[in-house]
């Protein structure tokens, strides 16, 4: 199949970017979206041009490195998957595909389609530690976890930190990411001692980089792991509790 790509090219963080049109010829429908870009880049390299820079790593939907706005939807028109799991058979021969980088103040563009997502690392760092005994592995089921809580924590922990939520959000907010990261610890017994401090610290750090949530819900449809909007409500609840709770009573630093 033959396609036309309209790709954002930008030489560096401060450079002015522009859209450049490329022809992607002889593309197999069985290629993944990233393999298609590889084929285009091979062509560009053989012509002596600079290849299109894009982020990718595991190419099996678990690392969260790939990050493209494809035809106006993060990770493309196929929902609940990452860009690397999108195959060219989802497109028709002759299509023009618009490919843009994630857009948000918290995700500055490094080059072309690559953005710097280290603001997410700052949020994770702000989460700190959890109080668990280290050493040899504890006996199974030593710490009882309600099944529903375990399932919900696993749902939250499915977040791969790709940033599609921020990319989709008209407010450039990172609520869904932070809510997932907060919740997968807050829902489990191991996460309780630092629960409220962690929530406050992670939310405050998030707000240094990102916008605020208006509950539009665009993030959850863009999410390749279908993280639920409910986690945002849980995070909001814990944030407010963290702000009003007299922590000395729970043995924590005020």
């Amino acid at each position: 199949m033959n396609l036309t790509l309209k790709v954002w090219r930008q030489d560096g963080p401060a450079a002015a970017g522009r859209f450049v049109m490329y022809d992607a010829t002889d593309i197999s429908p069985d290629m993944s979206f990233l393999e298609m870009l590889d084929a285009v880049n091979e062509q560009l390299i053989s012509e002596g041009q600079l290849p299109i820079e894009f982020d990718h790593d595991c190419r099996e939907g678990i690392c969260g490195t790939c990050s493209l706005m494809i035809d106006g939807i993060p990770h493309g028109p196929q929902l609940s998957t990452a860009t690397c799991q999108l195959h060219m058979r989802k497109f028709a021969d002759g299509d023009t595909i618009t490919i843009e980088p994630w857009r948000a103040a918290g995700f500055p563009i490094v080059r072309d389609l690559v953005v710097d997502r280290s603001a997410f690392d700052r949020i994770i760092e702000a989460g700190g530690f959890i109080s668990v005994a280290t050493g040899s592995a504890p006996d199974a089921n030593l710490m009882p976890v309600p099944q529903a809580a375990a399932e919900a924590a696993m749902d939250a922990a499915a977040c791969i930190g790709c940033g599609a939520c921020v990319a989709a959000c008209p407010n450039g907010a990172a609520q869904l990411f932070t809510a997932a990261k907060v919740s997968h610890l807050n829902l489990l017994p191991q996460g309780q001692p630092e629960r409220l401090m962690r929530t406050v610290n992670m939310v405050d750090t998030m707000e240094e980089y990102f916008g605020s949530c208006t509950n539009i819900g665009e993030c959850t449809t863009a999410c390749p792991k279908d993280i639920s909007l409910d986690f945002i409500a849980l995070m909001n609840r814990d944030y407010v509790r963290g702000k009003v709770k007299q922590r000395r009573l729970t043995g924590q630093r005020a």
Binding site: K6, W8, F19, M69, D71, G72, I73, L79, T98, E100, R103, A104, A105, G106, C169, P170, N171, G172, A173, Y209, F210, G211, S212, T214, I216, G217, E218, T220, T221, A222
Partner: peptide, 19 residues
């Protein structure tokens, strides 16, 4: 604040869930 958090929009964006 939200405007400043999203200074540049997309050439093309399809909203799925937003009303």
């Amino acid at each position: 604040k939200n405007r400043k958090a999203k200074p540049v929009g997309y050439e093309r964006q399809q909203f799925v869930e937003a009303t």
